[in-house]
Write a protein that binds this DNA or RNA. Sequence first.
RNA 1: GCGCCUCUAGCUCAAUGGCAGAGCAACGGACUCUUAAUCCGCAGGUUGGGGGUUCGACUCCCCCGGGGCGCACCA
Length: 497
Amino acid sequence: MHDSSPAPVPGTSPSPVPGTSPAPVPGTSPASRVPYRFERTSGASEVHARFDTLASGEESGQVVSVAGRCMLVRRQGRLVFATLRDASGSVQLFARSGVTEDLEGFSKLSLGDWVGASGQVMKTRRGELSVEVATWELLAEARRPFGDKWHGVSDVETRFRQREVDLWANERSREVLLLRSRVVESLRRRLWDRGFVEVETPMLHPIPGGALAKPFVTHHEALDCDLFLRIAPELYLKRLVVGGFDKVFEMGRVFRNEGISPRHNPEFTILELYQAYADYTDLMILVEELVSALAGELTGSAVVSYQGRQVDLSPPWRRATLSELVGEATGEEVDVHTPLADLRRLAGSVGIEAEPAWGSGKLLLEIYEKAAEGELWGPVLVLDFPAEVSPLARRHRSDPDLAERFEVIVAGRELANAFSELVDPDDQRARFVAQAEARARGDAEAMAVDEEYLRALEHGLPPTAGLGIGVDRLAMLLADVANIREVIAFPTLRPER
RNA sequence: GCGCCUCUAGCUCAAUGGCAGAGCAACGGACUCUUAAUCCGCAGGUUGGGGGUUCGACUCCCCCGGGGCGCACCA
């Protein structure tokens, strides 16, 4: 690892690239003179927790070392006040002649510079808790300007292209990403506590499956074959159930080669869980409990405010069948058995251009999505989707044209999708074939026949229920943000040119 | 992919078709208890790029690029 004469790194040029400034002599730039480590004793919030009770003007005599980024500098003659921010919060640095070494240098700190400072904790005469700087070190120089100290950075493009700037300049951005982190952590902990085993399944799939979506294609050189970035982990997770993992989950990235919108990023995080011996009614209870508990834990209440409206996530949630909701939205009582012609007419009346190949199930789904879904503030458990549009879900025990499937709708958007899993390999094959036919007719999002998965089913999948939750969407709900990019550290943007 | 909106100094924003400006940041100076906002001074721009109309374009028109929102598609 540490050759004395390292080989040239491929891709680097031995001579300076024309048009770029010459590389500085190694070891001489300011950035190379900063220390290799800094011994910090306290975070900013910890200093406040321990010393906020000091009286104005009181000196604690207790020395701490803090480190962070200089967000504000106020010079007052031979006094310098600086606001130091670290991951936990902010604390003021107070530098003065006779106490602070190299006060001259300290007074030249720029906004954005990283500093480590040691000194006693005291409270100024004006009552601001401060570290009275005795010794300090520059830990990183901010060579680039940092944005407006009052307005921060609000340019959306800068915020998402240079998230590191956004995160320092805008406290809210930090809070939102921190909340997302807690959502992920809490989901994991709650599932572990319930006995679910966390697993990891392939991201590179020979056949994209488990959802209806257009995949990204990539190529494996050694195998000389195309592979697809996964659009869902579903099929592999159910194969693990076949293998004996009776409660499994995976939380991870999936990739869908579709449009970008305030609610869609090409890569997003999904939580999928599978529980053997359970059906979709068990998962209704589970999803209600998970989401309401998360809201309580992370926002303090199961009633959350989203975009100016209240959402009461306390269980039980409203349960309504898809047909009922279509009826409410259109005033027409229809279901999956309604004659095709009537469904076509209804579809047309709500502004859908129905394709000739669509069956009654597809028509009903389209009508629901166009006329009903967006109006549901929720939370609502939308039950019993048509089997035709649910190729991996088990047929309803009381109606074979329906599937035992539900979606969770909150704020007009799908938050989760679940079903009693289709366990019959023959029926699964028939569903795959129907999908493949749709694919042959030009439906780029239809599934292909997955023989590997069918072979797994033939080894026996016990009664199983599966649930998928859009983690980004859940984070959006709890963080009360309207754009999915806010909850993704580095959302997809067109590359800079 | 289509439609609408938007792009001015490092940041946040101004400027009837008529000399491109302010605040903050930066830079130089003053100030021993400040709290985004002290005072004085000094700089800072191919107004996203290109073309057109005009005596004159940040402003009007066209093309291109980035971004936002909506539609479509989906979670």
